[in-house]
Design a protein around this nucleic acid. Structure first.
Lengths: 224, 224
DNA sequence: GGAATGCTTCGATAAGGATCGAACTATGCG
DNA sequence: CGCATAGTTCGATCCTTATCGAAGCATTCC
């Protein structure tokens, strides 16, 4: 009864609308200050501060102090994955919104998931990389193949795992209900997409919008 | 404050300890009745009923009515996956629970789960009964084998299902995270354990404490 | 130093919701 | 029909917690 991991504690942290909005905003991957998060959540600064310290206590956030600025970010990809999973359920059972606006359509196609790409494009990319045997997939395990290593290296993408973080990880996509690529490789690919100017981040949103040329380039490189 | 899927609504449903316990109990995949869930959550029946209707409204549960029994189950594998994700985070950040007291230790070993035995002893028993082919197990389905029927009959345990209630049912054990035996057979075995005076119920607790002789007898009969 | 900015803590208030007993409905049993 | 079991609804209580204003720290800039 009161055994096992305390999932109620974690869930109740996310269960407050103000905190949920903050976490949602942080799903974009960039760390934000308390003021920015207060604005995002629509609460006063003291209220936001209180929420943030609770999220910190709960282990859901990390804090990077830089002078008088304090940047809050999601604690780990695992936390991001959990939030994605909750979003997925909320989408599935939630009151179907009258009509999905254009922003939603863009989100469905491509968006940022913490630090990597998600959405239809990302799911298609993982499928393709597996088809081409650049990645080897077994259930939820994804590994880099030798040919994959040289392939990404040729693209200027580092695939050595310096940290403890895995190079490849499967992350469930709420809009497509299938996995896309996370891990350091997933993050590096998103970096490249932005660096090459193939796409830009939509302001105040997780949506990632490809330019016509950028989409072609992306498809040529990652969708064969 | 962007609009999006209402993750706070979903998370707050899981954020109540009673509801979290219920969902945890349902993670085994078998549907449970309101009474069973009330016991599992440690709340009264009216309280459980209120929680269950909230979970239903939230789309997290499905309901199968069979006569006067109402079996609640998780709405989908997607919901189960979300809960798994939350468990994962809770495990990762969870401040290792306070030291388990002696009562908790006893509960871990053996306790009552509604009307049958749960805990390490019960899990071991089910394993053993399956090994001995007295019970046939396929995933979460458990059936009585012909040899099992005569075996239990010889022990004075009735195995005819007079009611609609199944003879055998798998019930997920929260302390061991594996299944133990429920259903009328599980209930009958617990009855026998108490009737033979092998063990007594701890007062005001679900713990079941075996006497030294009782434990030997139990092991001789059920653990081979 | 003093002023300005970023953020946290404190205190009071208010609202939400978890809880249970009692009463009520529904199904099954004889 | 009468009784027992399973479950829900209602009403009252009580506790948690979200909220903001005011005040308090901390850092930076001039």
């Amino acid at each position: 009864m009161r055994e096992g991991p305390d999932i109620a504690r974690i869930a109740s942290l996310i269960g407050d609308p103000a905190r949920a909005n903050m976490l949602n905003a942080l799903m974009g991957g960039t760390a934000l200050t308390a003021s920015e998060l207060a604005l995002e959540a629509g609460v006063s600064l003291p209220t936001a501060s209180s929420h943030l310290s609770k999220l910190m206590d709960g282990g859901l956030l990390t804090l990077a102090s830089q002078g008088r600025h304090r940047y809050y970010g999601l604690a780990s990809p695992q936390v991001a994955g959990m939030i994605e999973a909750i979003i997925g359920v909320a989408e599935a059972v939630g009151p179907k919104r009258v009509r999905p606006g254009p922003r939603d359509a863009a989100m469905r196609v491509a968006r940022v998931c913490y630090d990597h790409l998600a959405g239809e494009q990302a799911v298609a990319m993982l499928d393709r990389l597996v088809d081409r045997k650049l990645l080897l997939r077994e259930e939820n395990e994804i590994r880099l193949s030798p040919s994959g290593a040289s392939h990404f290296s040729a693209l200027g993408i580092e695939t050595d795992s310096k940290s403890r973080r895995p190079v490849c990880r499967a992350c469930l996509d709420w809009s497509v209900r299938r996995s896309h690529l996370a891990g350091t490789l997933g993050a590096a690919i998103l970096d490249k997409i932005i660096a090459e100017n193939w796409a830009r981040r939509e302001k105040d949103s997780r949506a990632v919008v490809f330019s016509p040329n950028g989409r072609q380039a992306f498809e040529r490189v990652f969708l064969c």
